[in-house]
Design a protein around this nucleic acid. Structure first.
Length: 580
RNA sequence: GGCCCCGUGGCUCAACUGGAUAGAGCAGUCCCCUCCUAAGGGACAGGUUACAGGUUCGAAUCCUGUCGGGGUCGCCA
């Protein structure tokens, strides 16, 4: 039930009626017509821009059209008031029952209230995290993980068939480095003294991996050359790291549907197949790139390479797919990987990258555009940096010094709910300040707490209502007579509830889960105000044993608030707590 | 230097993708607990949306340019 969509339909019917009466020309483009909550509630319940949007093509003044629409809508039983304001806004006030009707709609739909068929079952692939399997996930990955997972949940809620996917970069030199590093730990486990020089990972998270390798193979690799162990250890170590990464993700309740191995693309003809596709389209050629504009790299020299004509698909320069020695660049398997996604039949692709991969966006989009003949859209969301604060001061990370903060560190300190919510309170493309102290604060200043507290307060009231003999089963609340509702603070909350389905669709369409977080904050705020109103006036209290009909109506209303809060928190992957 | 992102009250951020008088939270001043969680609610004050042009009924939002901050820039993945 989406009241805004419903009333948009009513406005469009009014337009059609005017067209039938020859007051408006046929064939108007109606896509831009919106029905929204007005910024200022004094303007009414809903506002439509229809008249202003249609004015030009209809050849009539916006206010005239608006007046005509208002006249038509006044005859609609759902509409209490319709008038025209400003440059041609059509402002509607609905019959209060229309709003109040949202409560049984919420209670019968339960946590799924607001689900949408916007996605129409389209298959969407969300690729996220995709960290190199060479170490534990750190804070930056954490943001990507949380964002990607919440976006996936949001899209699923909005009717998409979502696949969550992790691309394992296990094909490059970094996994050799990993293998060598593990070998050193393996030697250590055998009591040897080793030195960690350049070109190996010094992190002690590899100590248990070295030990595990010893447990598995004993002394088989001792005093042997690389040719005897590199490939084996590479596989062993990569699997160990992936196991660790899965555990880390599980801490945040993030579960992937597919782990896709870059290595699986090599030696199987799949990279060649993808590039052949591009070649067939005349997009592959041998050439020499221009040097980058401006600052010239020290060692710049012209080199002939195999290039992808990405400029035909919106990129700024063509991109190499082969190095000058003939081996693949990183880009080549990435093209093959995205080709694979296209071939698997996804209707849309979403990649979530860290901001440091911003330079990669255009070429990746160009590749997908070329590979799919423009049929499969690729949206790339960049998650910006996370800045950590502790005791009021920025907390510096250094991978080199081994002081980088892992996902596990963060979750251990503030828990999964706080981690997720805080990271979703910001747009993905804005840098995020993560303050460990504030994250744990139990106050209004902390949005996680504030929203969960609202949910817990409802639960608390319902518990007391049950003790006082009221039924708090949804099936009973669903049948309650709601005519006692209508106070201003109540209507504010109810209208907010009615916005939820609309917000889900807007957030899903924009790929912006942070809107859910902000909505929940607003809803919680409206609820806190409502509950507080009962402090000042006895007749605004939820529980009043002298007014049972009114009490039942209010219990139904606040239960609906809890249901929507729980549903929204579910999209964010945050627990709706019953008690705190 | 090229490309990408960002610039909104003192601070941290929203603004439903072009809508009406730009909204919240902190910080500031003030008010509200015999009663459903005060872990909260209210009131006041605070703005030329970095700047300059442009597009149109209408711009924080779109275009051009300038200035600031960050990221990135052919054999790293």
């Amino acid at each position: 039930m989406n009241l805004f969509a419903e009333m948009r339909g009513a406005v469009l019917e009014a337009v059609a009626a005017l067209q039938a009466a020859d007051e408006l020309p046929a064939g108007l483009a109606l896509d831009a017509v919106t029905v929204e909550p007005p910024r200022d509630p004094a303007h009414g319940d809903m506002a439509s821009n229809a008249a202003m949007v249609l004015a030009k093509s209809a050849g009539r003044k916006p206010r005239d059209i608006a007046e005509a629409l208002a006249g038509a809508l006044r005859g609609d039983a759902r509409v209490a008031e319709a008038n025209v304001a400003g440059p041609g806004f059509l402002n509607l006030r609905l019959q209060p029952e229309m709003w109040i009707g949202v409560i049984p709609a919420v209670l019968s739909a339960g946590i799924g209230f607001g689900r949408s068929d916007l996605g129409a079952g389209r298959k969407v692939n969300v690729e996220f995290v995709s960290a190199n399997p060479t170490g534990p996930l750190h804070v930056g990955h954490t943001r990507g993980a949380v964002f990607g997972d919440a976006l996936a949940r949001l899209l699923a809620f909005a009717g998409h068939d979502v696949t969550r996917e992790y691309y394992i970069n296990d094909g490059g030199a970094q996994v050799d480095t990993l293998a060598r590093s593990v070998y050193l730990r393996y030697l250590e486990a055998h009591g040897r003294t080793v030195a960690f020089g350049e070109g190996v990972y010094p992190g002690d998270y590899l100590v248990p991996v070295g030990q595990a390798l010893k447990d598995k193979v004993g002394d088989a690799y001792l005093d042997k050359g690389e040719q005897d162990w590199l490939a084996d250890i590479r596989t062993f170590a990569t699997e160990a790291m992936l196991a660790r990464i899965r555990e880390d993700l599980a801490l945040l309740d993030v579960e992937m549907d597919v782990f896709f191995s870059e290595k699986s693309l090599y030696g199987t003809g799949r990279i060649e197949a993808a590039l052949n596709r591009l070649d067939d389209a005349g997009l592959i050629y041998q050439g020499v790139l221009e040097p980058p504009k401006g600052k010239l790299p020290e060692d710049w020299e012209p080199r002939e390479q195999t290039l992808f004509r990405s400029t035909d698909h919106g990129d700024d320069v063509d991109r190499p797919v082969k190095k000058s020695d003939g081996s693949w660049t990183y880009f080549a398997p990435d093209i093959a990987y995205h080709f694979d996604k296209v071939e698997r039949g996804f209707d849309a692709l979403i990649d979530i990258f860290g901001a440091d991969h911003g330079g990669y966006v255009k070429r990746m989009k160009a590749a997908v555009s070329a590979l799919s003949g423009g049929a499969v859209p690729l949206d790339i969301k960049l998650t910006q940096l996370v800045r950590l604060f502790k005791d009021g001061a920025p907390f510096k990370m250094s991978k080199r010094a081994g002081t980088f903060v892992t996902l596990r560190d963060v979750v251990d300190q503030v828990g999964p709910d706080v981690t997720r919510f805080v990271m979703l309170m910001r747009k993905n493309d804005a840098t995020l300040d993560f303050d460990f102290d504030k994250a744990l604060e139990q106050s209004k200043d902390n949005p996680v707490f504030y929203v969960q507290y609202a949910h817990a307060r409802v639960a608390s009231v319902l518990r007391q209502a049950a003790e006082a003999g009221f039924s708090t089963d949804d099936s009973d609340l669903l049948e309650v007579d709601l005519t006692a509702l209508g106070a201003d603070a109540e209507m504010t909350v109810i209208r907010k509830l009615a916005e939820w389905p609309r917000l889900v669709e807007a957030a899903a369409a924009a790929h912006e889960p942070h809107r859910v977080a902000f909505y929940l904050y607003d809803l919680a705020s409206a609820y806190h105000a409502l509950q507080h109103a009962g402090k000042a006036a006895q007749n605004l209290r939820f529980l009043d044993t002298d007014a049972t009909a009114r009490t039942r109506a209010r219990l139904a209303m606040i239960r609906a608030v809890a249901v929507v809060l729980a549903g929204g928190l579910g999209i964010l992957g945050v627990t709706p707590v019953e008690d705190m």
